[in-house]
Amino acid sequence: MISLLTVPFLRNIMIAGGLVAVGLSPWSVYVVLRRIVFSGAAVAEVASAAVALAVLFQLAPFPIALLLTVASFLALSRLADSPVLPPETMVGMLYAGGAAASVLLIAKAPRGEADILNILFGNILTVPSSLLWTMGAVFGVLSLLQYLASKEFLISAYDPDMGRTLGVRVELWNMIFYGALGVAVAVAIRTVGALLTFTMLVAPGAAALCLTGRLSRAFKVALAFGVLAAIAGVVVSYQYDLPTGPTIVAILVGIFVVSFGFGRAARAG
């Protein structure tokens, strides 16, 4: 594996995968516990539509995607309290709307379809070094935020009424949580695409929660699973000439299946 790191483009792929894992996998614990798994998928579609929109009007894709991703997460967090409809309805509509808008906007875009699909869905094989620095900075700040605001994020999700009576500004912290998640998703989609972003936002946390009965440990286990899957995915895809993103996704799903089985066996025994 050390020899793989001497190949510049492989080194970049491995660093990109590792950064996405560090940036997203600890959030996946909250995504699972807050029951917002499909929000990630829906927001990923909105990010894709935003990129297509930017291409159509020849604007910079990343700022538009970032803006709409953060706005979508914030809107979902506010609309989840609707007295009329269950929260997943809004998620479903956002998913359908984002997907349809992507296809319609691509159909009218002036650039080649392959070129646009690359921008839309990201390609871990073509991550430039400059983007790695951006990812490192953004994910570093978000990880620090998650560590420092862990008690605010926890009480706002677990028992918001208790939080309010203690003087915690639950609405503000929920906005910060969803805003930060939106930024993380926008940066990750730009790099590795919607499928890997979505899986990295669910599988590591779900696997960790199967194996540990301590929340603090779940974040560490999720991080370890995310990084392991990213590195193993790059190595396996290189060795067996497979597409890298789907290989990482398959490994993450495999880790979840094994963890789920172990968890069940441990509880039964």
């Binding site: 008690k151 605010e152 203690l166 003087g167």
Partner: peptide, 13 residues
């Protein structure tokens, strides 16, 4: 969690 209100933002128990 009962201590959270006594701590400022970003401060851990």
């Amino acid at each position: 969690m009962g201590r959270y209100g006594r701590l400022g933002p970003f401060r851990r128990p």
